[in-house]
């Protein structure tokens, strides 16, 4: 009777968990590196921090898509402690590990953004993409993207100011063409001022 029952692990979603484990290792590693960098007395250059953060975001997206991909099997799986788990001594740790309820802060946070999303008609990513493209195009129409004048100035017919150097006002020497100058320097032919 004391013979422990060998649990059946056939229903543990190993493959799904393995892919998750890989992603989680990456994310944890990146977070740890970032934390170490922030702890330094002199911060690394912002560009390096920014890159680190971008890497982290990519890994997070990858993790999130893995979860979505495996969501069917993960939702149907229920985890429970086996007799081997030292339930008596490590009850707290067990609760932490197996807890499924969202932390109150996170819950608040989610509620908050849900409130913000209430009046929004766009529901899917595709709709969002369409809307964004339209909006950007509309915004682009509002501006002139070339030249040195604002649209308002162009509409009012303002001419760009022309700066005239004091020397140029005299107008001497400008009457010679480049051919005349070359003729003078090469052949010594005195130019005749028109």
């Amino acid at each position: 009777m004391n013979q422990p029952i060998e649990p059946d692990h056939i229903n543990v979603p190993t493959e799904a968990l393995e892919s998750l484990r890989l992603r989680l290792t990456q994310v944890s590693h990146s977070l740890n590196t970032l934390q170490a960098q922030l702890h330094q007395p002199t911060l690394p250059p912002w560009s390096s921090l920014h890159n680190q953060f971008n890497v982290l975001l990519t890994q997070l997206v990858s993790l999130s898509s893995t979860i979505t991909h495996q969501s069917d099997i993960l939702q149907q799986t229920v985890t429970f402690p086996l007799p081997a788990f030292p339930t008596a001594t490590e009850a707290g740790l067990m609760a932490t590990l197996l807890r499924k309820k969202i932390l109150p802060e996170v819950e608040e946070w989610c509620e908050e953004v849900k409130q913000k999303a209430l009046g929004v008609k766009i529901r899917t990513v595709d709709q969002y993409g369409e809307w964004a493209a339209e909006t950007v195009e509309e915004a682009k129409q509002e501006y002139e993207w070339y030249g040195l004048m604002t649209r308002e100035e162009v509409d009012n017919g303002v001419k760009p100011p022309v700066y005239v150097a004091p020397e140029e006002e005299a107008g001497e020497g400008a009457k010679l063409t480049i051919e005349q100058i070359l003729q003078f320097t090469c052949a010594g032919k005195m130019p005749t001022v028109a």
């Binding site: 649990p7 692990h9 229903n11 543990v12 979603p13 099997i73 939702q75 149907q76 799986t77 229920v78 985890t79 429970f80 402690p81 086996l82 081997a84 788990f85 030292p86 001594t89 490590e90 740790l93 590990l97 989610c110 908050e112 953004v113 849900k114 409130q115 913000k116 999303a117 209430l118 929004v120 766009i122 529901r123 899917t124």
Partner: peptide, 27 residues
């Protein structure tokens, strides 16, 4: 603190939980 293999899992047929798009949209 915890011996390996001390957690088990089983598959329980559960109804599909509808995805809540509100959070994503809000963010």
């Amino acid at each position: 603190h915890i011996p390996v293999g001390s957690l088990g899992a089983d598959r329980v047929p559960a109804p599909q939980v509808a995805n809540e798009p509100g959070v994503g949209i809000g963010w």
